[in-house]
Amino acid sequence: MMNSSRPVRFKQPSRLPSFGETVIENEQVLTLVFESISWDIHTICAVASVSRRFWAIARRVLWRSLCVHRAPGMAAALSGSDPSGRIDGGWQALAKLMFFCGGGESTRWPGHFASESRFSKTSGRFFLPKNCRGDLLYVSDPCEHEAVGGGGEEHLGVFRGVFREFMRSKTRQCLVRRQAELEEKVRCPYCGGRVWSMKAARLVPKSAARRLGSRDGGLEFYVCVNGHLHGTCWLIPLSSDEEERDFDGEEDDDSDDFLRG
């Protein structure tokens, strides 16, 4: 059900001769340029592919600046305890997770830049077992895909997310305590790290399926060693009075989690 092929990566440039730093290769100049175009991710990808010097600048400066500009609250929450501003898996992986939907083997479009994405830490709580709800997890709304061979009636939701300080999280402690094995054929599509199947570890709460509007047994998601989450769910149509909530009175309080590609 999940895409088990090698993770899609931003194209890394080949080695090109260097003739000294030009004006456009200056980090401050590049920062001003990208500020003027609201940190367009497609342009950053194109620039990072020009040369190894641009690739290094993007890795050192541009990906973090993109994340901070497009989702300041989420970026601050994920890196707040580290004075150096580092995050698990790196800023490039987070930028890709924010804007790239990995799709799946059962969908017509296996991977694409999402035109818009909404991440919520309130939604993230529905994906955590009760004894792990002290963890901070942001999860996107599912990106709806038409299933291959579904005749237009079967739809697959593809979603993604990210933990704060996953190495210290209760979720990771649960996986270790249960001696959950890392998957052999599945890799994180955002950082390439090895992953645990939360379904195999029996750590998928029923509230996650209800939150996504997925049918029973139709939900699977993985968490990688760096705390990136990706998964799929078979969607069913729900009327407004059928939706169930586990956290009465809670509202999504993320004011900066709606991202446009």
Rank of each mutant, 00 (worst) to 15 (best):
D216T: 14
L219S: 02
G213C: 12
L182F: 03
L212W: 06
R194P: 00
K170S: 14
L203H: 03
C191E: 03
L212H: 06
K199D: 15
L182V: 03
V186H: 06
Y222R: 05
V225M: 13
R211C: 13
C188Y: 01
K199E: 15
R187G: 00
S214R: 05
R202D: 15
A208H: 01
N226Q: 11
V186P: 00
M198K: 04
A209V: 02
C191I: 04
R172E: 10
L203Y: 02
W196R: 06
Y222I: 07
C191N: 01
W196E: 03
C174G: 00
V176T: 11
S214Q: 10
P205W: 03
S197A: 12
W196Q: 04
V204E: 12
K170W: 05
E184T: 10
G218H: 08
G218V: 09
K206G: 15
R210M: 14
L203M: 12
R215W: 13
Y190T: 01
Y190G: 01
H228I: 08
M198I: 09
Q173F: 07
S197P: 07
F221Q: 05
K199V: 15
V176K: 11
R202A: 14
A209D: 07
R211T: 07
A180T: 08
M198G: 07
C224L: 08
R178N: 10
E184P: 00
M198W: 01
C224A: 03
R187S: 08
Y222N: 11
L229F: 06
F221D: 10
K206L: 14
E184L: 13
P189W: 01
S197L: 04
R172K: 14
G218Q: 09
S197N: 07
R215G: 14
G213E: 08
K170E: 14
G227R: 02
F221E: 09
